[in-house]
C-alpha cells in the first residue's frame, strides 16, 4: 500500500500575498484509507525561526472529524480561504525569521500524524543587510 501524500496548492500560484488579501487554495490527500483516519486539520499560521525558541500564531484553523462525517470524499480536493491579517509580515532576519504557511495535518486513529505545509510570503519586507564593519551589533 502506498503511503498517503498531501498536496497543497495556492490559488494564483502566488507565493507573495499582501495583508488584507484573500488567501485561497486547496489540498488533496492521496492514497489514504479513510477507515484509518480520525481527523484532518488545516491551519494558516506563522511561525518563527532563528536563534530563539519557536513562536507560533494561528490565523485560521479548520478541523474535520471522521465521526462527524465532515470529511466527505477524500479523493476530491478540499478548498480553504481566508483573509490575511495586517501582521506579522514574513521576515528573513538574522536571528529572527517569520514564516507564513498553510499546514495540513492528517490525524490517524493509530500511528503518527502526517503533516504537510506550503509556504507563502506575506508582505514584501526586505531582509536586513549584513552589518557594516564599524556598526556595533547591539546597543544597551
Amino acid at each position: 500500500m502506498n503511503n498517503p501524500e498531501i498536496t497543497i496548492r495556492l490559488d494564483d500560484n502566488g507565493r507573495t500575498y499582501w495583508p488584507g488579501a484573500t488567501l485561497s487554495g486547496e489540498y488533496r490527500i492521496d492514497a489514504l484509507e479513510s477507515q484509518k483516519l480520525q481527523a484532518i486539520e488545516v491551519s494558516v499560521l506563522w511561525y518563527s525561526e532563528g536563534k530563539g525558541d519557536e513562536d507560533l500564531g494561528v490565523h485560521e484553523f479548520w478541523r474535520k472529524d471522521a465521526e462527524s462525517r465532515e470529511l466527505g470524499d477524500l479523493r476530491r480536493p478540499d478548498r480553504f480561504s481566508t483573509v490575511l491579517p495586517q501582521s506579522p509580515l514574513s521576515y528573513d532576519g538574522q536571528i529572527v525569521k517569520i514564516r507564513w504557511c498553510v499546514r495540513v495535518r492528517v490525524i490517524f486513529r493509530r500511528g503518527r500524524d502526517l503533516v504537510c505545509q506550503k509556504l507563502f510570503r506575506l508582505g514584501n519586507v526586505a531582509p536586513p543587510k549584513p552589518p557594516r564593519p564599524n556598526q556595533p551589533e547591539r546597543t544597551g
Binding site: S48, G50, G52, D53, E54, D55, G57, S87, P88, L89, Y91, G93, V96, I98, N124, V125, A126, P128
Partner: peptide, 14 residues
C-alpha cells in the same frame, strides 16, 4: 521603504 515592522512575541522580537 522595505523596513520590517516592530514585532513582539514570546521569544522573539524586532
Amino acid at each position: 521603504a522595505e523596513a520590517m515592522h516592530s514585532f513582539r512575541a514570546r521569544h522573539n522580537q524586532v
